[in-house]
Structures are given as structure tokens and as C-alpha cells.
Design a protein around this nucleic acid. Structure first.
Length: 449
RNA sequence: GGAAGCGUGGCCGAGCGGUUGAAGGCAACAGUCUUGAAAACUGUCAUGGGGCGACCCAUCAAGAGUUCGAAUCUCUUCGCUUCCUCCA
């Protein structure tokens, strides 16, 4: 969310971003709604002021007659207010619905483009492995080593379900422990946040495209809570409110950031650096036909995520963004995974983002790179929705800047490790940095058959 | 799951139908005094919105209602606390 004053003053700039991000929004219409809203607001406030004056006058009325007169007048004004109010509420709602869609501006160095095809590769590291034997994909490897069971996963959990087994389960836990500890060593405070949350956290971080959850477009699972089925949740006509909706997060980011919602921090507290571990759930709506095999695209996984809340300084936020993303690169290097870095273009960026990178690891079975991480700088776009402010050194209240980065998800690096480090005999070498987290500190996963 | 109670400004806490946007205290900030600090004293000090401004509107968990008028009364929801029950 942006400040309406900023929008009024930067109409052309935002119109430009709307085009570059490919967002369906008529900014001129928003501004005209804004004007109507202010007019109605002023009219209503004037009526309220009048009414308040009359209420004061009652106290000093000379006699019952005068009192009656005042009450009559008050009723007229109340009528006027009641007539005008629905109109104002309607406009206000319309205004808010439009405001929520206004995208954040983009950084000066964000490439302009229409889709992910226009993202710009800016870095590449590591040698793509060459194999002198027939390469297996992670599905075959996982099966032969008895560390991944997709059939049972589908049987129990349905499409995109999976079981991690034996060294596979240990390897995933090792990845998470490794990532978690690395960030703690870098000064991040560890957190295990809730994954079942109210809508506010998801709206606040931009995971709902509108003000409310929309099952058609939002890639989030809604959960039945209380005793009513989902379809019957929401406000009842008779004013009886139902239980609050709950959702499963797709990353720890919403829970970690919403920890501070409605708070006013002090500048001395900033930057706040947190590393969170969570289970992540994704409905993968809109990706029905994509990556249907294996672990690449699943509904449920584990992930270590980092977030930073910092003072509002654009330049410093860019530096922080780089600093956070450097950790992802360091991790890929330490794991020995060849990777490349993409600067995300305007059209592939979600509405709230100011600047974003993706990191992709080499996956032999894809004969290409696959996304293993993403770092985003939102400036104060999320903080406005979450209402997180700080008092700066001059005593002024400002919204904090928020940034986030994938430290390590569980399934995709697992794919990359299996496929890149497979041996001719079907065994898989475990990256050195993970061995201390493996039971028995094993160095290799071998077939038991 | 059963019972009772409670939700007021950064915090504590009064107020229970009209000079209450809200006493008092703490914290914070500015000043006086002091070589400096502390103490003491004086002053400032909620948030959001509208207006060029005087100023106006809204907010005492949220929503609805009663009333000319609600922080105060009624209802609903949410949250918290305590006791009992149950339980990984």
C-alpha cells in the first residue's frame, strides 16, 4: 500500500509503474474516487459538528420548549447523516479496494519486462557437472536409495504428496539446521512462527491480491476453523459473526513480519533481523499443469526464511537487500551447487515489490536451472498494510522498510544435491557442510540393496 | 469442555449517561538550579483524518443497538486472566 498523498503527487510515476508491472488499474479513476470521497467526508463531518453543537445546547436550554426544538433539529440532522452515510461508505469501500491494488514503485535498476522470460541473468557461479554415465533424476535416485517415496505420498496426501525417508529425511533436516545456524551466526534471531494464521498477516504482506482472500487467484490454503464449514463462514445476515477465517502460510515471512503489526518501534531497535523456520503450504493455483513430477513443485515443504525490518532509507535498503541475498549465494557455494542469479523484471514482480532477485540452482534432470530462492525489498509497502512504524531520531513517525529472502527451502536444494552429486553406482555424496547434521556424520548415501 | 472476571493513552491506573480526549502516577522530552550529574522544581507530552488557517471530525478491544447525548447502558464477536475439567 502506498500513501494517498504520495499517489496524488506522483500520478505519472505510478501510472508508469502500473504499465511496467502490467497491473490492471485505472489510476485516474482512483483519484476521482478519492476526490468524491473527500467531498463526502467533509459534508459528513460538517453535519456531525452541527449535531455536536446541538447536543451542547441542550444542556443550557431555558425550558422544555426550547429543548424540544433542539431535539427536533437534531433529528433532522441525524436523518441527513443517515442519508449521506451509505453513499460515503460505498465510495470509501471503492477507494480502499482501489488503493490496495496500487503497486509499489520499482528501483532504478529493475529491468523492464513483461514476464519471467525478461528477467536478466546477472551472475553465474560453479561448474555444471558432466557425467560419464547415464544421469538419473531425483525421482529415480530417491526411489533406488529408498529416501523418497512419491507413490505413497500421492496415496496418502494426494497429488504432489511425498514422503521423505531414511537418509532423505535426515538430509532435509540437515539442510534446515545448516541454514538456521548459518543465519544465527550472522546475527539473525531465530524464530519458529505460527503457520496457521488469520488473514491480516497475509493481507499485510501482500499475499492477498485484494483486501480479502480470493480462492480464484490467491495461492493460499484456507482452513476450516470453529465448527462451521468454510462455505458458511463469514458474517451472517442477522449480524451473527462466524469464527474468523484461518489460512496456512506459504512462507514464514507473513508470520515473522506480522509479529510487529500495529507497533511503533524505536529507531535504536532497528534493523531487526530474524531467521524463521516453518512448514510452508502452497495451493499452486495457476500452476496446475506445471512440474507435475517429483519434488520440484509440491504443496507442502519446509523452509528457512530471513526478514529484516529497517529504518526508511532507500539507499541503505538496497545495501541490505544485497547483504541478505549474498547469504543465499554463500549457501549455494558452500553446498557446491552451481547457480545463477536473476534480476527480476518489472512484469514478473508482484505489486508490492521494489526490487527482487531470484537464485536458481543447476538441476541436471531439468537440464537447466530451477528456482531455489528469492530476495525482495518492499520498502514500506508491507509496513503500511501491517501498520508497523518507528520513531526516527528526529522524533518523526515513519513506516519501517521490510525485506525478505529465502535462506533455504527443503525440496529443491534436495533435488539439486541428489542430481548434482550422484555417482555412477547411484549413490549420492553429501555436501561437506551438511555432514555434521547427518546421523553418524555420513558422507554418502548408498543403496542398501 | 464448564465457571467467573477483565479489555481505557508508551506503561500503570481512575472514570460507570453530558464542561471526559479522558484525573493521578511512571516513563519520555525541554527548561531552571548545579562545575557536571543526581535530586528538586517548571513546562510539554495519545492516534488517525479533513482544512491555507482559526479550527473541525473520529477513536476508551471490534461491530451493532438504546439515547438529544455513550468510555460509561444492552447485545454480538474477538482477545486476555483466574479456577475446575481434560490432555500431547
Amino acid at each position: 500500500m502506498l500513501d494517498i498523498k504520495f499517489i496524488r503527487e506522483n500520478e505519472e510515476k505510478i501510472k508508469d509503474v502500473i504499465v511496467k508491472k502490467g497491473i490492471d488499474l485505472d489510476l485516474g479513476f482512483l483519484l476521482s474516487v478519492d476526490k468524491q470521497r473527500i467531498v463526502l467526508l467533509q459534508e459528513l463531518e460538517q453535519l456531525s459538528a452541527l449535531k455536536n453543537d446541538l447536543n451542547e445546547m441542550i444542556k443550557t436550554a431555558k425550558d422544555d420548549n426550547e429543548r424540544k426544538e433542539i431535539i427536533e433539529k437534531g433529528k433532522e440532522i441525524k436523518n441527513d447523516i443517515e442519508k449521506k452515510e451509505p453513499e460515503y461508505k460505498k465510495i470509501k469501500q471503492q477507494f480502499e479496494d482501489l488503493m490496495v491494488k496500487v503497486p509499489n514503485v520499482i528501483s532504478f535498476d529493475t529491468p523492464i519486462g513483461k514476464s519471467d522470460a525478461d528477467n536478466v541473468e546477472v551472475e553465474r557461479d560453479g561448474d555444471i557437472p558432466k557425467f560419464d554415465f547415464e544421469v538419473k533424476d531425483h525421482i529415480q535416485l530417491g526411489k533406488s536409495l529408498d529416501i523418497l517415496d512419491l507413490e505413497k505420498g500421492t496415496k496418502v496426501a494426494g497429488f504432489r504428496g511425498y514422503y521423505m525417508k531414511n537418509e532423505g529425511a535426515s538430509l532435509m533436516m540437515a539442510l534446515m539446521m545448516y541454514a538456521m545456524n548459518k543465519l544465527i551466526e550472522k546475527g539473525y534471531s531465530p524464530m519458529i512462527p505460527p503457520t496457521l494464521v488469520k488473514g491480516d498477516a497475509l493481507f499485510g504482506t501482500g499475499y492477498f491480491k485484494g483486501r480479502e482472500y480470493d480462492s480464484e487467484i490467491d495461492e493460499v490454503y484456507e482452513i476450516a476453523s470453529g465448527d462451521s464449514p468454510i462455505a458458511e463462514q463469514g458474517k451472517e445476515a442477522d449480524g451473527k459473526a462466524s469464527k474468523e477465517k484461518k489460512f496456512l502460510v506459504g512462507t514464514a515471512e507473513p508470520s515473522l513480519l506480522a509479529y510487529y503489526c500495529d507497533e511503533i518501534l524505536k529507531e535504536e531497535q532497528l534493523p531487526i533481523k530474524i531467521v524463521g523456520y516453518s512448514q510452508c503450504y502452497r495451493s499452486e493455483i495457476g500452476s496446475y499443469g506445471k512440474d507435475t513430477k517429483g519434488l520440484y513443485r509440491v504443496h507442502e515443504f519446509m523452509k528457512v526464511e530471513q526478514v529484516v525490518l529497517m529504518a526508511a532509507n532507500e539507499e541503505e535498503s538496497i545495501n541490505m537487500h544485497e547483504e541478505m541475498f549474498a547469504i543465499s549465494k554463500e549457501i549455494h557455494k558452500e553446498l557446491g551447487l552451481p547457480y545463477r542469479v536473476l534480476k527480476i523484471c518489472s512484469g514478473d514482480m508482484s505489486a508490492g515489490k521494489y526490487r527482487a532477485y531470484d537464485i536458481e540452482a543447476w538441476m541436471p534432470s531439468r537440464d537447466g536451472f530451477g528456482e531455489t530462492g528469492s530476495a525482495s525489498n518492499f520498502l514500506d509497502w508491507q509496513a503500511r498494510r501491517l501498520n508497523v512504524k518507528y520513531v526516527d531520531k528526529a522524533g518523526e513517525k515513519k513506516h519501517v522498510y521490510m525485506l525478505n529472502n529465502t535462506v533455504l527451502p527443503s525440496p529443491r536444494p534436495f533435488i539439486a544435491i541428489l542430481e548434482n552429486f550422484q555417482q555412477a553406482d547411484g549413490s549420492v555424496i553429501i555436501p561437506e557442510v551438511l555432514r555434521k547434521y547427518m546421523p553418524g556424520n555420513i558422507e554418502i548415501i548408498v543403496s542398501k540393496k
